[in-house]
């Protein structure tokens, strides 16, 4: 997998940030609007895969030295823990709550526990997708 494509590499450097920003927007929009953790995770994964295609696996792995399996497991764990949180408080499993708070910089913001669940889904999707793709891609 040694090839240098100047156009691909240059445009990737810019595109990856646009895609990542968009993916984070989509993830946080998901509570009441189209979007969500799954689709946000897939978009992030697509940005990472673009990196892997433009540069080779070894280089990207030096920049992002993360074990994606752990990201996936951590994601599932976070999602589970939000469910267990409601369990501990005596509500039915996976109950959600939301509140409006004035945050500095953001102004009046809706804070919902569903977002934490979505964050877990996001991490799980990124982790699983990257694990699957790398398990084929890392083989020479």
């Amino acid at each position: 997998m040694k090839f240098t494509d100047v156009i691909l590499q240059t445009s990737t450097k810019i595109l990856v940030f646009i895609i990542l920003t968009f993916s984070i927007y989509v993830m946080f929009a998901g509570h009441n609007n189209p979007g969500g953790g799954f689709i946000g995770g897939l978009i992030t994964a697509s940005a990472l895969i673009l990196l892997y295609i433009a540069f080779d696996v070894k280089t990207v792995h030096e920049i992002i030295p993360i074990d994606f399996k752990l990201i996936g497991a951590a994601g599932v764990l976070i999602s589970l823990l939000t469910g267990i949180g409601s369990l501990a408080l005596g509500y039915p499993f996976l109950s959600q709550a939301f509140a409006y708070r004035d945050l500095p910089l953001f102004g009046k913001t809706e804070l919902a526990t569903a977002v934490i669940f979505d964050l877990g889904v996001y991490m799980a999707v990124v982790g699983t997708t990257m694990t699957i793709i790398l398990s084929i891609g890392e083989d020479e």
């Binding site: 699983t128 997708t129 699957i132 398990s135 084929i136 083989d139």
Partner: peptide, 12 residues
């Protein structure tokens, strides 16, 4: 999606 991914890895 998960199943297709799994079967691709399996096939590989």
């Amino acid at each position: 999606f998960a199943l297709t991914a799994f079967s691709l890895v399996l096939g590989y």
